[in-house]
Design a protein around this nucleic acid. Structure first.
Lengths: 123, 123
DNA sequence: AATAGTGTAATAGGGAAATAGAACACTAGT
DNA sequence: ACTAGTGTTCTATTTCCCTATTACACTATT
């Protein structure tokens, strides 16, 4: 797994698993790989994985069952809320960053559209 | 100054000053506050500020003159290039993050538009 | 009971970031 | 010459992140 050395690894693992849950790669109620297997998958330490999981457990997205495994919550409302929250965070942060670069709303939209067309042509 | 504890302070200082240059708060050729004053302004250590400045100096955006001060480059091309670079980085990162949440191009645009209208009504 | 596979916790050590403090190098004004 | 204000560099210390290792607690299977 590719890590941005500017951001703590445990945080990037958490984001990565959140994405898998939201994309449906991990379904509600589904069992996650064991912490030891996850550690191998992302080439990080068990403790680092555990720290990421702890935060997701505290957030109610993951249910931890000692001796059995970690499971994605069955509560689909929580997942929907999580998705909304992550999207809003991303959009808000991007908007504020670009606004801080003196771009108007229209310029921000145009930059994004331009990026999309560029990207579309390359693939 | 507000810091995100997930990202190194020196890096956030650098971004902050870059924004001031691009917005024109700091004009080409203008003298920056002294490193000691900057440290007070952002409530960080002189060494941390110096580290941020070192990277901007290396990038050719800041000219350092020992005994006199730090100055924004007179080369406006470099500033224009910097702006383009930062915009592209922000747009690309936001797009990729939202794309990773399974949003189509259209949905990404709509999320942004929605955020803008919401924001517009509040202010 | 024994074993293997889980989550959980504790310890010890290394490294990067940030701080505090001091010192050095240069410039300008007095 | 002196002094004050600059950038620059160095050392020491602290804190957080990450790793490695070990141990403990629980579950299911045999």
């Amino acid at each position: 797994m590719h890590f941005d050395d500017k951001i703590p690894i445990y945080y990037q693992i958490k984001t990565h698993i959140y994405h898998e849950i939201i994309m449906g790669t991990l379904q509600p109620g589904e069992k996650l790989p064991s912490v030891r297997q996850l550690a191998l998958d992302v080439t990080a330490n068990v403790n680092t994985v555990q720290r990421a999981l702890s935060e997701m457990i505290a957030a109610g997205i993951i249910d931890s069952k000692r001796g059995k495994g970690n499971f994605v919550t069955m509560d689909e409302t929580k997942i929907t809320d999580l998705k909304t929250q992550l999207i809003t965070e991303q959009v808000a942060r991007a908007y504020q960053q670009l606004h801080a670069l003196n771009l108007s709303d229209e310029e921000i939209l145009n930059s994004l559209k331009h990026y999309m067309t560029q990207r579309g042509n390359v693939e």
